[in-house]
């Protein structure tokens, strides 16, 4: 905020000193630069969003609209078996996914960032190593891990057998108790580099004097972290949390690759993205477009709403820091 205010001052001054007339047609230049992006954004983002909203209010038979449905599709989604149960189950799994990711991925990411910040040795290499998995598409990561964890041919269980831990050689992705935790762990494995980089950047921005002052005052390492570092990381925590939330509630590729479209086994890894895919594309049925659009709208409203609330919450926390 402070930076932005400083930057805008010279520009305003320039405008006041008659520069505006000299550059009168500037909006056209702006338009040329903005128009392509705006057009693409409208065609590929705004239009699909608006049309999903539009579709969700109509009755469908295949690709033919047969009449205005009002909230009929939304009601169906919440009342037709098995969607009435699958919707809440998937929502619950998304919440677990988010909670697990915050707890594991983002905490470990913070730990890595702190360690790299404290002990600089091999920093470049380790940073690169931790962020490499996110160069790979989640679908590929999912298939790789499901191969590794394959109970028949996979090396993970073969290794466990070889070292005498055969009681640990579980069907990881075939057990309703372990499947979702495994998906969360693999997701964390892929994305742990992201919170690490965010927190590293934030740590580098904390003036060293604060820590020195804390040490002079006799604070222990933990106290210094808890009272000085962590509060100053609030902006980074906010950004990481909101992006994790958006990513996790939109999860699809990784879960699809590891658990198929039905959230195998027995729906224990089913998430909203998979439910949408099934209703819209897999199961067919002449009602598919209306119901899947309704689900897409619900997901968007929820994710957008919570993201806005979370952002404003973290803004307020940040303001309190200043």
């Amino acid at each position: 905020m402070v930076q932005a205010r400083e930057l805008s001052v010279p520009r305003r001054r320039a405008a006041r000193t008659g520069a505006r007339r000299r550059y009168a047609p500037r909006w056209r230049v702006l338009a040329v630069f903005l128009l392509p992006a705006l057009l693409l954004y409208s065609v590929f983002i705004v239009y699909p969003l608006v049309s999903a909203l539009d579709y969700s209010f109509f009755e469908w038979r295949g690709i033919r609209q047969t009449g205005f449905a009002g909230l009929g599709n939304y009601r169906d989604l919440l009342s037709v078996y098995p969607y009435d149960q699958q919707l809440w189950r998937a929502f619950g799994h998304n919440a677990l996914f988010f909670g697990g990711t915050m707890l594991i991925q983002n905490t470990v990411g913070l730990l890595f960032a702190l360690l790299l910040f404290r002990y600089g040795r091999g920093k470049r290499f380790l940073q690169a190593a931790f962020t490499t998995p996110y160069l790979v598409d989640p679908l590929v990561v999912g298939y790789l891990w499901s191969l590794l964890l394959n109970p028949t041919f996979g090396p993970v269980n073969a290794l466990l057998d070889a070292v005498g831990l055969d009681s640990w050689a579980l069907p990881w992705l075939g057990d309703t108790r372990t499947a979702l935790p495994i998906v969360i762990l693999v997701n964390a494995w892929q994305w742990v580099g992201f919170p690490m980089l965010m927190f590293s950047a934030a740590l580098a921005g904390i003036p060293a004097e604060y820590h020195e002052a804390a040490r002079v005052d006799g604070a222990s390492a933990w106290q210094a972290f808890r009272r000085v570092t962590l509060p100053l990381l609030t902006p980074a925590i906010g950004v990481v949390s909101v992006l994790t939330f958006i990513g996790n509630f939109n999860a699809f590729g990784l879960v699809y690759a590891m658990a198929g479209s039905s959230g195998s086994p027995a729906g224990s890894t089913d998430v909203l993205g998979l439910l949408f895919y099934r209703v819209g594309f897999v199961e067919g049925g002449v009602e598919a477009i209306g119901r899947s659009s309704a689900l897409a709208v619900l997901m968007f409203v929820f994710i957008f709403g919570v993201s806005l609330l979370a952002t404003s919450y973290f803004r307020r926390r940040e303001r309190r820091l200043v």
Binding site: N150, T152, F153, P171, W172, G174, D175, P265, A266
Partner: peptide, 11 residues
Amino acid sequence: PKDVVAVKIPD
């Protein structure tokens, strides 16, 4: 096959 719920078609 053992653990059939985790077994895939290629397997």
